[in-house]
C-alpha cells in the first residue's frame, strides 16, 4: 500500500463518505460516449445534509447510484467509513424519484419491507407502528398504495428507508411530484427525521429553494462532463425562513452560478 492510499483511509475516519476523482461514462445507443461524471470529488462529514443541484445530465443521480452501490465508477475512489463501496447495503438507503412503493403491499408492509428482508421483523415489529405514527400515517396501515395521496406515498417511502436507520440516505428528487404546499410540509418532516436519526443525507434536487432550505452544503454541478463548480456552506440556523434576506441571497448566488454556466 503506498502512502497516498494510507492518507485517504486516515481522512475517512473523519469524513464518513469520501469520493475522489470519480469517473463514470455511459455508451449511448449510437455508440457515442456520455460522460456523466468526470474526476468528481466530494467529502461528506458525519450527519451532514448535502444537496446536489444542477441541470439534467450533470451526473447527480449517477453519483447517488454509485454511493448506493447500484453502479460502479470506472475510475476513482469511493469510500464509506473507510471501506470501498461494493454493492447495495441497507446501511445506504435510497429514496427514488418515483416513490415506488410496492403496490401489492399495504402501507404497513411497505414500511416493514426492509426489516422483513433482513429477518429483523419479529424482534422489531413495534418499530413499524412507531414509524407509521411518527410519519402521521396512523389509520392508513392497511391501505393500498393506490388509495393514498402523493404526499402520503412520499412519507411511506421515507419511512421505508428511515426505519432501517441507515448511515447514509440518498434522496433522488423525492418530492418533485408533489404540490408546493405538501412539499414544504414534507421538507420539515425530513429535517425532523434527520435530527432524530442523524444520517448523512445526499439530496438531489432541481429545486434550488429546496436545496438551500434543507442542506448544510449545496454542491453546484454542471453537465457534459458532470463536475462540481461550487460547494457552498449554508450556515443558516434551523428552522430556516425561506423569505429571510440571507436565504434569498444564497438562492440568488446559486441561481447565478447555474446561469453563468449555461452561457
Amino acid at each position: 500500500m503506498d502512502e497516498g492510499s494510507h492518507s485517504v483511509v486516515e481522512e475517512t475516519r473523519q469524513r464518513q463518505l469520501l469520493a475522489r476523482d470519480i469517473t463514470r461514462a455511459f455508451i449511448n445507443e449510437d455508440g457515442s460516449e456520455l460522460v456523466a461524471l468526470k474526476d468528481f470529488s466530494l467529502e461528506i462529514n458525519k450527519g451532514q445534509i448535502i444537496a446536489l443541484v444542477g441541470p439534467s445530465g450533470c451526473g447527480k443521480s449517477t453519483f447517488l447510484r454509485l454511493v448506493a452501490g447500484l453502479d460502479e465508477p470506472q475510475a476513482g475512489t469511493l469510500l464509506y467509513n473507510g471501506q470501498p463501496i461494493a454493492g447495495p447495503s441497507p446501511d445506504r438507503g435510497f429514496v427514488f424519484q418515483q416513490t415506488n412503493l410496492y403496490p401489492w403491499l399495504t402501507v404497513a408492509n411497505n414500511v416493514a419491507f426492509g426489516l422483513k428482508a433482513r429477518g429483523l421483523y419479529h424482534e422489531q415489529k413495534h418499530r413499524v407502528q412507531e414509524m407509521i405514527d411518527l410519519m402521521g400515517l396512523s389509520g392508513f396501515e392497511k391501505a393500498w398504495p393506490h388509495q393514498i395521496s402523493g404526499g402520503m406515498a412520499s412519507r411511506v417511502a421515507l419511512a421505508q428507508t428511515f426505519i432501517q436507520d441507515p448511515g447514509v440516505i440518498l434522496l433522488d428528487e423525492p418530492l418533485s411530484a408533489l404540490d408546493a404546499f405538501t412539499r414544504a410540509i414534507i421538507q420539515d418532516e425530513i429535517v425532523a427525521l434527520w435530527q432524530q436519526f442523524e444520517p448523512i443525507i445526499i439530496l438531489v434536487s432541481h429545486d434550488v429553494e429546496e436545496a438551500v432550505y434543507l442542506a448544510d452544503r449545496v454542491v453546484v454541478m454542471t453537465p457534459r462532463p458532470g463536475r462540481q463548480i461550487a460547494d457552498l456552506a449554508i450556515d443558516l440556523p434551523r428552522p430556516r425562513e425561506r423569505t429571510a434576506p440571507d436565504f434569498i441571497q444564497i438562492r440568488r448566488e446559486i441561481l447565478q452560478l447555474l446561469k453563468s454556466e449555461e452561457r
Binding site: A68, G69, L70, G87, P88, S89, P90, R92, G93, F94, F96, Q98, N100, Y102, F113, G114, K116, A117, R118, Q160, T161, Q164
Partner: peptide
C-alpha cells in the same frame, strides 16, 4: 426500481424473487 429499491433495503435474491 422495484428490484433496486429492495436491494438497497437489504433484500436477498431469493427474497426479491418471492416478495
Amino acid at each position: 426500481t422495484y428490484i433496486e429499491r429492495a436491494q438497497t433495503l437489504g433484500a436477498s435474491h431469493f427474497f426479491i424473487l418471492r416478495k
